[in-house]
Design a binder for these strands. Structure first.
Lengths: 242, 242
DNA sequence: CGTCGTCGGTGTTCTAGAACAGTACGGCGT
DNA sequence: ACGCCGTACTGTTCTAGAACACCGACGACG
């Protein structure tokens, strides 16, 4: 009956879709938990597990004694900003596009080797792209793929198709998980030239490892000048004292 | 029988303490869930709730089929729970302390005025503190409070008591919400001197507005040299396509 | 006219147990 | 010697129900 995915995942996905489709507008209350449990044919506990998932994703807000509500979209805005940083921006709002600067094979540096779990001196495919917002360069992204995957990828039309999609369709690899680290660095000469600013200006550097089927598949390194980008988040202090 | 705090809170607190006291070392496995449930005299479900709390706090890691382990402390600054950056860290793991550099009244700059909702040329109390980790300076924090609150705060012993606590006990103000923005900047001369590095090195600058009762109460500006901090986050791509 | 209690809605915590699902390791077969 | 596979551990998902806690509104009482 149930696939191999937990029931509460299905339920969360179902509600998530209804929110995304606008069937449940921001601020609107969901049916009460007991009713939801009944319509999904599960126990209250199981339903609550689904709601917990959604709450962690900031899609809903639960208020004791009041009800459960679709979260205001202001919170998504932060997430959007974070999305951006990593470069998987989904052209929402501003005019965003990507310019392919080039691809080449090269020997990977130490950080890339470690992240991808490759032996020393292994070769990788390097894909270099520039993200433009409203026509102005926003970030420079270098993606590294193990050579064996790179062969296939290098033939794809990266100018128009997102790398994610190439991996999915050409190689059957679906990125499931990623770990991203952001640091503050000084912009190098080459990076500065591509981004149209001076060498040495402070910038964010994001390094990200993406996993498909528990295997490191892509390493991304993104540079964003500090004057073009900020990370914003909303904090809430509810229970827990210190 | 049970106090007004949920049972699973108590359990989480108990385990949290054992970790903090070093009774459970980083990397060490906890007893299995069924055993823990028994020793706490509670159901498996209830125990799991406690573990979930601890996992969200990144104090433990649960691994299916393997066990539950005390998480290895990381200097990375997790953007999802970023207690750290803002400086309300609870001495977890590393040896952390704060040195009060000084307090003074001054005319606020534009950003501070806007954030706190003050009129032009308003005076504020400036509290300057240095965060040390293992004896080395990690971040420089400047907090700004409206003068009317500042009078009271200035008399408190900020060397030993966290600002949060002063606000809570002396003024009855509980911070409920905050908005934080992180950008990449070049470190100024004064900041560099306090932090023991050269002017001009890239750094994170975090600006945070904290609200109590929907009123902006404190504005914090934190500088952290780029070579001492990183922001890390875990991404999951489950349902939702883009 | 105001205040306080009750009531019916909501989410929250908890029980006792069953079945499922990864992981490691050791023994069996080849 | 090697590989497969069962088994005994681990965490995970789920049930069916009960009792609790919180919130807002309505009505009774002073």
């Amino acid at each position: 009956m149930n696939g191999r995915v937990p029931r509460y995942h299905r339920i969360a996905e179902d509600i998530r879709e209804r929110i995304r489709d606008g069937e449940l507008a921001p601020g609107a209350p969901l049916p009460n938990q007991r009713a939801l449990a009944k319509t999904f044919g599960v126990t209250l506990m199981t339903l609550r597990q689904a709601l917990e998932v959604l709450e962690r994703e900031k899609l809903i807000v639960r208020r004791h004694g009041l009800g459960t509500f679709v979260a205001a979209p202001s919170i998504d805005y932060d997430i959007l900003h974070l999305r951006r940083l990593a470069g998987e921006l989904s052209a929402q709002g501003e005019d965003v596009n990507t310019r392919l600067l080039g691809t080449r094979f090269a020997v990977a540096d130490r950080a890339v080797l470690a992240a991808l779990g490759l032996g020393p001196r292994a070769r990788v495919l390097v894909v270099e792209r520039l993200r433009l917002v409203d026509g102005h360069p926003m970030s420079l992204q270098r993606s590294f793929l193990p050579a064996r995957l790179g062969e296939e990828v290098a033939r794809a039309d990266l100018g128009t198709m997102p790398l994610r999609q190439v991996l999915e369709h050409k190689l059957g690899l679906t990125i499931e998980r990623a770990r991203e680290t952001v640091s503050a660095v000084r912009l190098g000469r080459r990076e500065a030239r591509e981004l149209g600013c001076h060498a040495g200006v402070p910038a964010f550097e994001s390094e990200r490892v993406s996993y498909a089927a528990n295997q490191a598949v892509v390493f991304d390194r993104v540079f964003i000048p500090g004057d073009r980008f900020r990370i914003t988040r909303e904090l809430h202090y509810e229970g827990a004292s210190v």
